[in-house]
């Protein structure tokens, strides 16, 4: 019994049908606990006041935004090598989730930046990188939407994911060299998350776990949708052939 058993769409549907309710409930509970904890039961930061509470949405969303793309890349590679449909469809399913998470990170970052930096938007390398990541998500989603044949679409988007990953990383470093002068990241960086006091650290970790669970739940749900959509397409094609 290997993990590839679940690459079979029928098996995947059967298993996910059983797991999904529990997964959804668990992620809802953890998200609720984390956000209530973060919003109601954390003190203000001595420097940032109450805006520090934004960290419990901003940082987890940003982490998911990046890792969703990594997951899509891995799923695309698995599709190209092993031709498991579930893998290709999981990559497709993750893209909108990653795009929305990127948007959340950008929006909450802007709202946090306004009182802290005095501006909604600075062309800081990290902000810039997320905006670029968002553009990559848009292109990937648009390519999926534009191609009729699902296998062709899966192949082409996989190639795009690979090339896109290389150039997304390049863009990240280009942005660093382009504007290293404005590197005021101290108020919101990943490194800082490791230095924040325990009162912020534990709810933050809880929020990250919650967002990961939410991501997994949504990807499983959306993969099921895509598997059904694919089967629907096949049935309709068979019908019209008669």
């Amino acid at each position: 019994m290997s993990i590839w058993e679940y690459a079979n769409p029928v098996r995947f549907m059967r298993l996910s049908d059983r797991v999904l309710p529990w997964l959804a409930a668990l992620s809802a509970i953890v998200m609720l606990v984390a956000l209530v904890w973060g919003f109601f039961f954390t003190p203000d930061d001595y420097r940032q006041g109450s805006t520090v509470k934004i960290i419990f949405i901003h940082v987890p969303a940003a982490m998911i935004a990046i890792n969703a793309w990594v997951m899509m890349l891995v799923a695309s590679l698995i599709w190209l090598v092993r031709r498991h449909h579930v893998s290709a469809l999981a990559a497709k399913a993750a893209a909108p989730v990653g795009a929305v998470m990127t948007m959340i990170a950008l929006v909450t970052g802007a709202v946090w930046g306004e009182p802290m930096w005095g501006t909604w938007w600075a062309w800081d390398p990290r902000l810039t990188s997320f905006l670029i990541l968002f553009l990559f998500y848009l292109g990937y989603i648009a390519l999926w939407a534009a191609i009729d044949n699902p296998d062709t679409a899966a192949d082409l988007t996989s190639v795009l994911a690979i090339v896109g990953s290389v150039f997304a990383v390049l863009s990240r470093y280009a942005a660093l060299i382009w504007n290293q002068g404005l590197h005021q990241g101290a108020s919101l960086s990943m490194d800082r998350a490791e230095h924040v006091a325990d009162v912020f650290y534990y709810p933050l970790v809880t929020a990250i776990v919650g967002f990961i669970l939410l991501f997994v739940t949504l990807v499983v749900l959306r993969t099921r949708t895509e598997i059904r959509a694919r089967r629907l397409r096949a049935l309709l094609a068979r019908e019209s052939r008669e």
Partner: peptide
């Protein structure tokens, strides 16, 4: 839309 993000670097 596909090519422009690749042009950024």
């Amino acid at each position: 839309l596909l090519v422009m993000p690749l042009y950024i670097p």
